[in-house]
């Protein structure tokens, strides 16, 4: 990547990969590439301190504090209704769209509290991509799905190249390259979800949030998505909510365990969580005694 940077400056026909990237993100890649060798100790990009969420009077999250390292996969696991998705939606302020949701505490993205007055949630969401539980491509062509974010965010550039790049990164290019202008709804469920991933990474966000991205898919599609997530972590910070513990164990570097009542019980390296958790309740949950 760093070599590609110097090429990009001298060569006008640089690879589309570096051409689509802003200067800032390249600098970031350079500075962090040193610490990237030994995973769970990347620099913190998301830092939650005492985050609480209420829906009306129901408390959905209770004093969540955790620090998500950059260029890692961080998994959030826990039983249904424990607030995993709620926490994920705090990061890009999707909870703002729910009328009676209220958030307090601080949640910093790259050092800036996203709930500060001067933060525009729309601008925030342009830095934080999101993939949802059910594949939800727009009823538009595959091409238009991928360029949607670019158009909405007013990003100029060689759209053909960006689309090809995003689809290649999402491991979908080979399957759809000859029918880019057909509807995205004609794809299979797994392909649709990879299209949604391509759509999310096309505008080159810093963080990629995934809300149980494989839960509506069959095992083959699921393993494709899992392979993809591991690759995406090289370029993006991935935070993934899953109720599938094996999945978390397979793909994540760090794991947060939420238990009933919206409490974060344990947050540590994935290996430690699954082999030697601190809390008895976490061990019970992971070994399947409840949840």
């Amino acid at each position: 990547m760093t070599d590609g940077h110097s090429e990009a400056e001298t060569e006008p026909n640089a690879t589309t990969d570096s051409a689509t990237m802003t200067d800032d993100s390249e600098d970031e890649l350079k500075t962090h590439s040193a610490g990237f060798e030994s995973p769970p100790t990347g620099e913190t990009i998301i830092e939650a301190e005492d985050v609480n969420v209420w829906y009306d009077d129901d408390r959905a999250l209770e004093d969540i504090s955790m620090a998500v390292p950059e260029h890692n996969v961080t998994a959030i696991i826990g039983p249904s209704g424990c607030g995993k998705s709620t926490f994920l939606r705090c990061i890009n302020r999707m909870n703002d769209l729910i009328d009676d949701a209220r958030v307090d505490g601080t949640l910093k993205l790259a050092g800036k509290n996203v709930y500060d007055e001067d933060v525009d949630p729309v601008a925030l969401r342009r830095r934080v991509g999101m993939v949802f539980q059910k594949p939800n491509p727009f009823p538009k062509s595959i091409y238009d799905n991928v360029t949607y974010g670019l158009e909405m965010q007013g990003i100029d550039g060689d759209y053909d190249a960006i689309v090809e790049d995003a689809l290649r990164e999402a491991a979908l290019w080979d399957e759809v390259s000859d029918r880019l202008h057909e509807s995205g709804l004609e794809l299979s469920g797994g392909q649709q979800q990879r299209l949604c991933i391509a759509r999310a990474i096309a505008p080159d966000p810093e963080v990629l949030l995934m809300d149980e991205p494989a839960s509506a898919l069959d095992p083959v599609a699921t393993s494709q998505i899992e392979d993809l997530i591991a690759e995406l972590a090289e370029e993006y910070t991935v935070v993934i909510v899953t109720h599938n513990m094996q999945q978390a164990a397979r793909i994540s570097d760090k794991t947060a365990v939420f238990l009933t009542g919206g409490k974060l019980v344990e947050f540590d390296d994935t290996q430690k969580i699954f082999e030697n958790p601190e809390h008895q309740r976490v061990e019970d949950y992971i070994t399947g005694k409840f949840g």
Partner: peptide
């Protein structure tokens, strides 16, 4: 479907863009 609105907002679209597109 609300999932389409969510997808659009999640892509950093404003409400107006979501309504229009």
């Amino acid at each position: 479907p609300d999932s389409l609105r969510q997808a659009s907002f999640g892509m950093g679209a404003t409400r107006w863009q979501t309504v229009k597109h």
